[in-house]
Simulated assay, not measured.
Amino acid sequence: MNKKIVVIDDDQFDISMLRRGLEAAEIEIDVVSVIDSRSAVRVIRDENPDLAVVDLSMPHPNGFVVLAEVRADVHISHIKALILSGSTSVHDERKAHQLGANWYRVKPETLHGYRLLAAEISEFAAAAPRLE
């Protein structure tokens, strides 16, 4: 069974680049994308992914709120979470970790950068135990 990630990002281009990075790196991970952050927690609960990739800068709720809601939900609080952001702010990274993010990365600017990120995501998702 392939590992599964849910990507929450209001920017279709960023979702597309992550998918292209995974494909270019020949990594087989099922990707479920969510562009409406209001439905993010429901989709994560329904999909039970190995990893949730959450964009920080979204309209309400933003990535911090989504992450806090995931960590507060006993059914999905165990799911690994990556905050993927355009922000290089140490404050944002610290806050993400305080809210329970397992990992924080700045969004790459090139396809090559997304390939490298895809390889990291693959390793991270592979390390996540699959809970059914």
Rank of each mutant, 00 (worst) to 15 (best):
I83C: 05
I76M: 02
I8E: 01
I44K: 06
S39M: 13
D55Q: 12
R105M: 03
P129W: 15
D10G: 10
N62M: 06
D11V: 12
S85R: 10
R94F: 11
M17H: 09
N62K: 11
A127N: 13
D11K: 12
L116D: 15
G63S: 03
S87P: 06
S16K: 13
S33V: 06
K80H: 09
A101C: 06
A126H: 14
R45P: 01
A68Y: 01
I44C: 10
P59D: 06
V54K: 09
H91S: 05
H112G: 11
N2I: 02
L111S: 15
R105P: 04
L82G: 01
L22H: 02
E26T: 14
G21A: 05
I35C: 10
P61T: 04
D11T: 11
R20N: 09
L22P: 05
K107M: 06
I15A: 00
V32D: 04
H97Q: 14
A81S: 13
V7S: 01
D11R: 05
P59G: 05
R115P: 04
E26R: 12
Y104Q: 04
T88M: 08
R94N: 02
M17T: 02
V74T: 13
E47G: 00
T110V: 07
E93Y: 00
D9K: 07
T88H: 11
T88K: 04
D14I: 08
S57P: 09
Q12Y: 11
S85H: 07
E69K: 15
W103G: 05
F124N: 02
L67V: 06
V34E: 07
L67H: 03
R71T: 10
E120R: 07
P49E: 04
E132F: 11
V53F: 06
E123W: 08
G21P: 03
A81Y: 06
S122T: 04
V106T: 13
